[in-house]
Simulated assay, not measured.
Amino acid sequence: MKVLFIGDIVGSVGRDAVKQVLPALKAKYNPDIIIANGENAAAGRGITRTIANDFYDWGIHGITMGNHTWDNKNIFEWMDDEPRIVRPANFHHSAPGKGLAIISANGKKLAIINIQGRTYLPPIDCPFTTADRLIEEARKATPHILVDFHAEVTSEKIAMGWHLDGKASVVVGTHTHVQTNDDTILPGGTAFITDVGMVGSKEGVLGMQKDAVLHRFLTGMPSRFVVDEGKWHFHAVVADLDSKSGRANKLEKIRLTEESWLLMQ
């Protein structure tokens, strides 16, 4: 079983990149199930139902979220009716939506779980015990389990990888938008990477216009972050999972730039 996971999609630049690149990735890797992080898909802040439907039309089967889940307020009107999107499961129990979904496609089943870290992020329930609880629930449906750990610091993400080794098939870090070079299969058979990276402008700062970010760093004053419209880069991973046990056999990084993509066409 092959799973393609696409890093944080940022704004229209990121969406356009996914639309361009995804057909070729499907042809090359033949993934059974495609998951993407969509919490920055709408102008860098949250997601809309229209954008989610575009993702499905392009072949994405499930969407994970993060700390920007609620930034588009109309999500409260439809989140409870959307079975293919997961938001951090350790949000307050009254939050709309869910943190675990079973995605079925091409005769395969994959459980996707979304968890948010606590370091340098708002107070939230324990991500480690929440992950344990949901993995136990997911195993009733399938041994193939992917956890998107949306967290700020590398130490917390790496700790989660070790904590879930042998419990989840894949643990991917999201949120920091920089692809790390530590992709590995842990001893218990879990594929892990600290951060998958992002899909969006490579000419800004984490997908945002650099001038506003520099202003904040240089002056300490607030500034409005706007999605950068420069040339894109595309980060993702492909995991090859054992069809019976759910253990990972291989994890491969994908790293493309708009320039390299155009040369390949």
Score class of each variant (00 low, 15 high):
C126N: 15
H61D: 15
N106K: 14
S104F: 04
A111V: 09
F91H: 02
T154Q: 10
D71W: 14
W70E: 00
L134I: 11
I75L: 11
D80E: 08
D71K: 15
S104Y: 06
G66L: 08
H61W: 09
M65Q: 13
I60W: 03
G62V: 07
I102G: 08
G59D: 09
S155T: 13
R87Y: 02
W58I: 02
T64I: 10
Q116M: 15
W58H: 09
A111T: 06
F76I: 10
Y120H: 15
L110D: 00
K109D: 06
F76P: 00
K108R: 12
P127E: 01
W70M: 03
I75P: 05
I85R: 04
F128M: 09
R139F: 14
A101T: 15
I75N: 00
I112Y: 11
A138G: 05
W58K: 08
P143M: 02
K73S: 12
G59I: 01
A95Y: 02
D125Q: 14
P96Q: 10
D132I: 01
N67D: 12
R84A: 08
A95D: 02
W78H: 05
G107L: 00
F128G: 07
N114Q: 10
D80L: 04
H92E: 14
D125M: 15
F128Y: 15
C126E: 07
K73A: 12
H144T: 04
I60V: 13
A89W: 01
K108P: 00
W70T: 00
P96A: 12
T119A: 13
I85V: 11
K98M: 02
Q116D: 08
L134V: 08
T64S: 15
I102H: 11
G66Y: 05
G97L: 03
I135Y: 04
E156R: 07
F128D: 05
I63W: 09
G97I: 02
P127K: 03
R84V: 01
S104M: 12
D125F: 11
L121T: 04
H92W: 09
R133A: 15
R84N: 12
D132F: 13
N106I: 02
